[in-house]
Nucleic acid binder design. Structure first.
Lengths: 116, 116
DNA sequence: CAGAATCCTTTACGATACTG
DNA sequence: CAGTATCGTAAAGGATTCTG
């Protein structure tokens, strides 16, 4: 597979787009252990506003990676869960996570070196 | 580019940040086959402006993923090359590319379904 | 509690022209 | 050819408030 062919394939562009924002991968990451409520997600992530959280979850839902479950209760309860398709993304995401665990300090060292 | 202690594992967050923009992953990808000149990169990618190309390469260099080699010639010649650290990122990127080939159509199907 | 509605700031990105 | 300088637009993200 040549570089050109890879880039020409719109599925590859699609894949890059899925990671090309701040929160998509993070959300998938924190949903890995099972369904969770928005408040819980906000707690786990920290620093994400309600608006952006909703936007991101809606985007993931639109792409078929996450499912939204609303329960008719009071107070309202909502849960988000990875779809089967979404779970298949955990593998590649783990690859990044493993890389970060192994090489993260090298990146930070480079940033440090280049800041002086 | 916040790598604060928001997430439990901040190195994972660092990895996500490295890919959370349009061109970082693409640039690393097109550099996988060896050193290349900016003009060549622009050709391979298509649709990236000179300004953004430079910005992205500088960012990758700052993070220690890419090295810049300038030759004292006329006309000027410059080559960019993955560092050893940068090459270690090709594995995870490949994992994601493979995922795209396997599941990309499912994502597009979901988008289609949710557009109606 | 979920999340919609506002308002605001930042920045990513693009187009173009210019310099060494 | 590499890279900078400007200008402009669009989108992302954040803070806050309000409502069912």
């Amino acid at each position: 597979m040549t570089t050109d062919a890879y880039l020409a394939d719109c599925r590859a562009r699609l894949a890059f787009d899925l990671l090309s924002n701040t929160w998509n991968a993070v959300l998938l990451w924190v949903l890995r252990d099972g369904p969770a409520r928005p408040g819980e997600l906000r707690e786990r992530i920290g620093g994400i506003s309600p608006k952006v959280l909703t936007e991101t979850l809606r985007r993931l839902e639109f792409n078929g990676l996450v499912e939204r479950h609303a329960f008719a209760e009071a107070p309202p309860r909502v849960e988000y869960e990875l779809t089967a398709l979404g779970r298949t993304l955990l593998g590649p995401i783990d690859a990044f996570g493993a890389w970060a665990f192994e090489h993260g300090d090298e990146v930070m060292a480079a940033q440090d070196r280049n800041s002086r």
